[in-house]
Every structure is written in C-alpha cells, then in structure tokens.
Computed example of a mutant assay.
Amino acid sequence: MTQVRNLEEKTIASETIFEGRVVRLQIDRVELPDGGTSTREIVKHPGAVSVLAVTEENKLVMVRQFRKPLEKTILEIPAGKLEAGENPADCAMRELEEETGYRAEKIEHVVSFYTSPGFADEYLHIYRANGLSKGEARLDQDEFVELVELTLDECLERIAAGEICDAKTVAAVYLWQNQVLRGRSV
C-alpha cells in the first residue's frame, strides 16, 4: 500500500502588496512539507464566467478585443468578472447581453475550473446559452469589442493560427466540437 505524503504548505505570514479593481496581489511566507520555508506570490481574483453561445446558424458568438497583457487583439467568448455575491449564472446572462447584445432563454452550467492555479485563485465557470435572441450590446465605458460569429471549422482554424488563444475560449470550442461529434446540440 502506498503511503500518502502530506504536500500541504502552512501559511506563516501573508502581506497584501497591491489591491486593484480586479485583482489583489499578496506574498505568502509558507512552511513547506519538509519543514523548510519559502514565499509564494499569489493573485487573488473574485472569479469569472464565460458563455458558449451558438446561434441558430450554428455560429459561435464571440468578441474581438485588445488585451493589454498580451499586447494584441484576440477572439474570445463573452466573459466577465463576478461581482461580490453575484450568482455565476446571473453573471453569465448579464455578460452575454452586455458584450454581444444576445439574450438567452436559458443558461446551463457546463464546467468550472481554476485558470492558473500555480499563482492565482481565479475560478472560471463556462455556461452554455440556449434560445438566443439578438438585441443591443451595452458595453462598459472602458470596454471596446467587436462582435464576431464563427462556424466550428472557422474557430478551429483560428485556434491553429493563434487568434483564439485564451484557455476559456479554446476549452469552449473543444467542448462545442465534442458535442457536435457526439451528435448533440450545444
């Protein structure tokens, strides 16, 4: 029988070194499993949602926007940060409409995951939107996006070309592809 080793790190001290609108950065001093000590740089994030929305024409609803950390414009599925105490499904409905103008009759949870557990605690939820109807986008004052609708094949081509390159969107496209291959609607 294999003995399970304790891999947990005990926090000795924690210092917040930056607190912004979206993230907080902290440095934790930890005791390692072998008794030694080290530091961990941790990004605290309130969590986020993203929306896999496929139109009746079988096109994925996306936005093209400039991402400053990458210094380039990329294609993404609609997404946004959770507000304090906000239900993720409500946030998904809100973000879909704000960014794209589309409304969904129904929203369904698909999967949730940590985006970068090596340094951040962001937990992202992907929802599938069903029963889409077109309306008007209501972007935030500092938000500039272009609505884009692509077929599955076009999405796969954009992944290969590096234009779709963020984890949530790549995951959503492959979830959609898996559903298509299994003969199920998204």
Score class of each variant (00 low, 15 high):
138 R>G: 02
123 Y>L: 15
49 V>G: 03
90 D>K: 14
114 Y>L: 13
1 M>C: 08
53 A>Y: 05
45 H>N: 15
106 K>I: 06
141 Q>M: 11
78 P>V: 04
61 V>W: 04
72 K>Q: 15
60 L>E: 00
19 E>V: 10
141 Q>S: 12
98 E>N: 14
42 I>H: 04
44 K>H: 12
186 V>I: 15
42 I>N: 05
172 A>C: 11
89 A>S: 14
123 Y>G: 02
80 G>C: 06
80 G>T: 01
173 V>N: 01
9 E>M: 11
94 R>K: 15
19 E>W: 06
154 E>G: 00
150 L>D: 05
158 R>A: 13
130 N>A: 11
156 L>G: 05
158 R>K: 14
83 E>G: 08
176 W>V: 02
173 V>K: 01
71 E>A: 12
186 V>K: 02
120 A>D: 15
23 V>D: 01
85 G>A: 10
31 E>H: 08
22 V>K: 14
50 S>R: 00
18 F>R: 09
72 K>P: 08
35 G>F: 09
48 A>T: 07
177 Q>K: 15
32 L>A: 04
137 A>F: 05
68 K>Y: 10
58 N>E: 15
44 K>N: 12
137 A>N: 03
169 T>I: 06
115 T>H: 02
112 S>N: 05
96 L>P: 02
98 E>L: 12
37 T>I: 00
30 V>P: 02
157 E>C: 06
140 D>Y: 10
183 G>M: 08
157 E>A: 10
120 A>P: 06
26 Q>T: 10
181 L>K: 13
22 V>A: 15
23 V>W: 02
154 E>H: 04
135 G>E: 07
156 L>R: 12
178 N>C: 10
124 L>H: 06
7 L>N: 12
155 C>I: 00
40 R>A: 03
136 E>I: 07
149 E>W: 05
32 L>G: 03
56 E>C: 07
87 N>R: 07
13 A>I: 00
24 R>V: 13
6 N>Q: 14
63 V>S: 01
123 Y>N: 09
49 V>E: 02
97 E>R: 12
22 V>Q: 14
45 H>T: 04
40 R>L: 09
179 Q>Y: 14
136 E>Q: 14
107 I>L: 15
102 Y>H: 06
60 L>I: 02
134 K>L: 14
86 E>Q: 13
12 I>P: 00
94 R>H: 14
74 I>K: 12
37 T>M: 04
128 R>G: 03
158 R>G: 00
62 M>S: 03
41 E>F: 15
136 E>Y: 03
38 S>D: 13
152 L>D: 05
4 V>L: 12
49 V>H: 01
15 E>C: 07
17 I>F: 13
40 R>M: 05
45 H>F: 13
18 F>N: 09
10 K>L: 10
95 E>A: 06
15 E>G: 00
49 V>W: 00
79 A>N: 10
125 H>N: 14
105 E>C: 09
55 T>K: 05
91 C>F: 01
58 N>R: 15
126 I>D: 01
93 M>G: 07
177 Q>H: 15
34 D>M: 06
108 E>H: 14
164 I>A: 02
105 E>F: 11
